[in-house]
Design a protein around this nucleic acid. Structure first.
Lengths: 331, 331
DNA sequence: TTGTATGCGTTATCAA
DNA sequence: TTGATAACGCATACAA
């Protein structure tokens, strides 16, 4: 420990005042080049790094962004948000931000956590995930004037904030069209119960693709809670009738895995999943992959812009990313 | 925004000095009960929360713990550390700490990150993961007197620091013994090349269990880099000879998945994996599960103790956790 | 272009 | 048991 290097140490070393050092760091254009070089050299030589706490106290900004880490729900789908977190961490660092983690069981406790986090840590912003219908979190944050971006559209709510999302409908539509191009006509859909923004959107993609190709999707879908067993049951049900589907497009890899079990190795029935999870990779399931790293990067971009222009002259921005189909053996 | 509530606001409200408020918070025993109650009431009423930056500046402690998030290597095994992170976040919060994320491609850049993180954010401690032979990170942290705990033993290095680990050998031994009890005699092992602490340890479990049961493990193992394809090839190789194994114990779920492919649905050949990943759950693979939440909790415990007693009178502590076998269809 | 003075909110030291 | 004062390291307004 070579003694703490503060801005004063640097000032002494470079034979300038403390203020000049501060200017070199925060407003370099105010300082004559020769002076600046001397200060920079001193900073480098001494290994000076601005103390975060002191700066935060003065500016009120912590350069910390909070993000939630999920309490490991479904093992299959759980990994997506983790991958998003990876991306967030990687994108935030070069922008000078760090990611702080928190967990919350539901919206109410999440809001309580906001309150606590903001009160003591003075976080600069939040990245919300898993937005849904009737999401009270966005309203709370807006009312408290906390900068935030959501990964996920504000389903059913006004677009009062910036968000980044992936066009699930487009992804499912692409998967469906690919099957149509492959000669399939009766393509079923396994999705979630009505009312989930994400789920309804994915189903829309299937409906649109079918209609566009002149096929009536009526009766060809089942809507069940997410899960492998649920998917298996629904798929059996769908496949048991007369005129049963020759292909199944699913809203998640869990459902798709269940469907695959239901087809019991009958390779003629094509199955596609959603999210390109490790499970899909492992078992050779064709799946729609989300560009998570890009989504995370965009979130950081939007946030950085938001934080730099507190006046927000641009208004909220919305970015809709296209997913990509990863074709594997399953059809 | 009802105006910032600082310690002075509380002091005014409770008719005491600022210092007394501080004492109520940090050294309650110094304050008379009546005074304390009055202050506490004021704190509650005003919704006061200590400003983190100011406290940090004074005490030099940030109550922030850094942990690495992996750059999504193998999709199958990647999830383990994420689950560990979940546990860390959950355990840290009640102890008054938060987890800050960072990424690093290798040990060298990780050390550079330590330096930067410590210099500017003044993190209190680090949680290391994926310790390995010749790990330079632990030495750096020790030399710089940075408190840290590792999840993973210091393979081949002196136990100079506290760590938490899971007894992989015991887990593999248990899996092996279970197969022995089920009548298997020729039990093969699929592991990683020699030199990886974790891998060698897992293999030891198999060797020990076999020898204890009076069986010679010689020639019954293959050691390959982790991966599904590698596992499949190695399993084929192992199964192709005469007197081929009737069961395969694997060092990872990736290898086990490969082995499962090699057995091509021959249910008589039992396969077990390691880590109880989502993939194992999805395909019904028997696997050894690590108590990740508990490991994370223990890490926080050790860290908290370390940070409270900077003198470290206890010396480093070591905690070895037992994994548990999750039995599924695969044997 | 550079320097001086001040304050951010907290805790530690010391005196009362 | 309580209170006054200083100090942590930095950035800003203002003066030179």
């Amino acid at each position: 420990m070579p003694g703490k290097v503060t801005i004063d140490t640097v000032a002494d070393h470079a034979q300038v005042s403390r203020q000049t050092v501060s200017n070199v760091i925060n407003s370099p254009h105010l300082v004559r080049e020769a002076t600046r070089d001397r200060v920079l050299a001193a900073i480098d030589e001494l290994g000076y790094r601005a103390n975060h706490a002191a700066r935060q106290m003065r500016t009120g900004r912590s350069r910390l962004i909070a993000a939630r880490i999920e309490p490991t729900r479904d093992g299959i789908n759980g990994s997506i948000l983790d991958r998003f977190l990876h991306g967030l961490t990687e994108a935030a660092a070069p922008a000078g931000y760090r990611i702080v983690l928190y967990t919350a069981a539901d919206d109410a406790t999440e809001i309580a956590t906001y309150d606590e986090l903001l009160g003591s840590y003075e976080l600069d912003a939040f990245v919300l995930t898993s937005t849904h219908h009737g999401d009270v979190r966005t309203r709370w944050l807006t009312e408290h004037e906390v900068p935030f971006v959501s990964f996920g559209r504000p389903w059913g709510a006004p677009d009062g904030h910036s968000w980044v999302d992936v066009n699930g409908a487009a992804g499912i539509a692409e998967a469906t069209r690919r099957l149509l191009a492959g000669g399939h006509r009766r393509i079923g859909f396994l999705g979630w119960p009505e009312g989930s923004g994400v789920g309804d959107n994915r189903r829309d993609g299937w409906v649109t693709a079918m209609r566009d190709a002149g096929h009536d999707p009526t009766g060809l879908d089942r809507r069940v809670p997410d899960g492998t067993d649920e998917g298996e049951r629904a798929a059996r049900d769908l496949l048991s009738g007369g005129d049963s589907p020759t292909a199944l497009v699913c809203a998640s890899d869990s459902l798709a895995l269940g469907a695959l079990r239901a087809t019991a190795g009958d390779r003629r029935i094509a199955v596609t999943g959603f999210d390109d999870t490790p499970v899909a990779q492992a078992i050779g399931l064709t799946s729609v992959g989300q560009p998570l790293a890009e989504a995370a990067g965009r979130c950081v971009e939007l946030l950085a812009r938001l934080l730099d222009n507190p006046a927000a002259p641009d208004g909220p921005e919305h970015i809709l990313l296209r997913p990509h189909l990863v074709v594997r053996d399953s059809g």
